[in-house]
């Protein structure tokens, strides 16, 4: 339990939320939320020091390059930006990262991944979307595959995943497919989040909240 203090520095950050509140809504302890605030401060000040993570800052952290366009990074950024105002606020950052916590139920991770892959937000992953994502992945890697091979990969995946054969993958088909291929959501778990206070020990110096655990 914390005593609910926030530093002046923290209160001056737009969209800052009380670590006690964020902790109560997520698998993070109050100390971990405070450690995440240290990470958030670093990310949100890398280009524009305004206490908000802009897309360029997100790209810089992921790719060491603020101009690197990437379909999947765009999708992740947009899903974190719950208010859809073009920036990630601290509360959005913590709540979104909680999906990636090792203790978060697989069901939540599966649903989150589905929303990421449902590019046009139709409630289904369509063949064109899957092909677009495969092409985007090839574009960012050194892998070169002919259009024929890409078509075969997409076709084979649809044969396996689209169990009712209606040409699109619905949330239940996705759930079943992930159950058979659990490695598909491996990237939805960040072991770092279990040790976030160790990764950012500087929070201890700034912390005004005492954890009982």
């Amino acid at each position: 339990m914390g005593c609910g203090h926030s530093s002046k520095r923290a209160r001056s950050v737009p969209g800052y939320e009380d670590p006690n509140t964020l902790s109560s809504e997520t698998p993070f302890t109050v100390s971990e939320v405070e450690a995440l605030f240290e990470l958030f401060k670093k990310l949100s000040s890398s280009i524009i020091d305004d206490g908000l993570i802009h897309k360029e800052e997100f790209q810089l952290a992921l790719f060491r390059n603020s101009n690197r366009k990437n379909l999947f990074a765009d999708r992740v950024f947009d899903s974190f930006d719950v208010k859809r105002n073009g920036v990630i606020e601290f509360g959005e950052f913590v709540r979104s990262l909680s999906i990636f916590h090792p203790n978060t139920p697989a069901e939540d991770k599966i649903a989150f991944a589905f929303r990421l892959y449902d590019l046009r937000q139709t409630g289904f992953i369509e063949r064109e979307e899957l092909k677009e994502m495969v092409l985007a992945l090839l574009n960012e890697s050194d892998l070169v595959l002919s259009d024929d091979v890409v078509e075969q990969i997409v076709h084979k995946t649809f044969v396996d995943a689209d169990s009712n054969g209606d040409g699109k993958i619905d949330p239940n088909e996705w759930k079943d497919f992930v159950a058979k291929n659990p490695s598909l959501i491996k990237n939805m778990t960040l072991p770092y989040l279990k040790d976030i206070t160790l990764a950012f020990p500087s929070f201890v110096l700034n912390s005004e909240v005492e954890d009982s655990d």
Binding site: L39, L43, A61, L62, F63, N70, L71, F72, A73, D74, R75, V76, L97, F100, L116, Y117, L130, M133, V134, A136, L137, E140, S141, V149, Q152, I153, V154, K156, T157, D160, A161, F177, N181, S183, L184, I185, K186, N187, L190, Y192, A199
Partner: peptide, 25 residues
């Protein structure tokens, strides 16, 4: 040769989905 690669498996290796980079110091 039959294609056995899973499209979602391929996609899941995108650097854009690898958020561990956010934690790099």
């Amino acid at each position: 040769r039959p294609v056995t690669m899973n499209a979602f498996e391929l996609i899941s290796h995108s650097q854009g989905l690898n958020l561990s980079n956010l934690f790099d110091k």
